[in-house]
Structures are given as C-alpha cells and as structure tokens.
C-alpha cells in the first residue's frame, strides 16, 4: 500500500500552482501550451476519479449485450467486429443505449465542456 497524498491530490496541487502562480507570469505561445498542459492534468484527475466505476459498468453492459465474458479490451474488440460484420446494429436498442452511455462516460473525462456533451447532459438530466 502506497502512502499519501494520493496521485489525484498531487496532480491537483501541481495544476493549481501552474494555474495560479505560473500562468500570470508567461506570455506568447507558451500561454497556450501551458493551458493545454493544465487541461491534461485536469483530464488525468477526472480519469482517476471516474474510470474504475465507468469501466466496471461498461464491462458488465458488454457481457450482457454480447453474451460472452472477457476483459474490457477483448469485449470491445468483439463488439467492433460484430458491428463491422453487420451482426448487430442500431435495430438492437441495447446497442444504442450502450454506445451512448460509454460515450457519455468518455466525454465526462475527455471534454466535459464540449457543447454536444453539455446539451446531452441537459436534455437527459445527467
């Protein structure tokens, strides 16, 4: 068992330092680069918080949808393959539900400010 602070706490502390103390000091193209860097740290924090539950739920949905067991990577490969072969498509309502849930979980980590995501969150109440 590793000691504290947790990875999330460490990354947040670094991001805060960059945002509050470094950002006001720099200019030019580095302003943009620093913003991208802080965004990356924020993304990692979100992933650390959301990924375990998201992956578990995705694995469970996939197993049920496909009727097979396996790792998340293996199951996604099976699903991709079946869609490509036309064995499963949008006429299966559970597929659309699964893809929507999975994609919403990805956006919550990758780009929670993306307008399409915000619109879907609003219209579905979360």
């Amino acid at each position: 068992m590793q000691d504290e602070p947790t990875p999330t706490e460490l990354i947040k502390a670094v991001a805060e330092f960059l945002r509050n103390d470094i950002a006001p000091m720099i200019e030019g193209h580095n302003v943009f680069k620093l913003r991208v860097g802080i965004n990356a740290l924020d993304l990692v924090t979100r992933q650390l918080a959301l990924e375990p539950d998201g992956n578990a739920a995705e694995t469970a949905r996939l197993s049920k949808l496909l009727g097979v067991q396996g790792s998340l990577g293996e199951l996604n490969r099976v699903l991709a393959d079946r869609i490509a072969k036309g064995e499963i498509g949008l006429e299966t309502p559970a597929l659309a539900d699964h893809l929507w849930q999975t994609t919403m979980d990805k956006l919550a980590v990758d780009q929670p400010n993306y307008a399409s995501y915000k619109r879907e969150v609003e219209s579905k109440g979360g």
């Binding site: 990577g73 991709a80 869609i83 893809l99």
Partner: peptide
C-alpha cells in the same frame, strides 16, 4: 484500437 462508434459510422 477497437472503437464501436467508428465501426457503426463506417457501417
């Protein structure tokens, strides 16, 4: 890298 949504779009 399997991406079911891209597969759906290709289909």
């Amino acid at each position: 890298w399997p991406r079911p949504v891209f597969e759906l779009a290709l289909r």
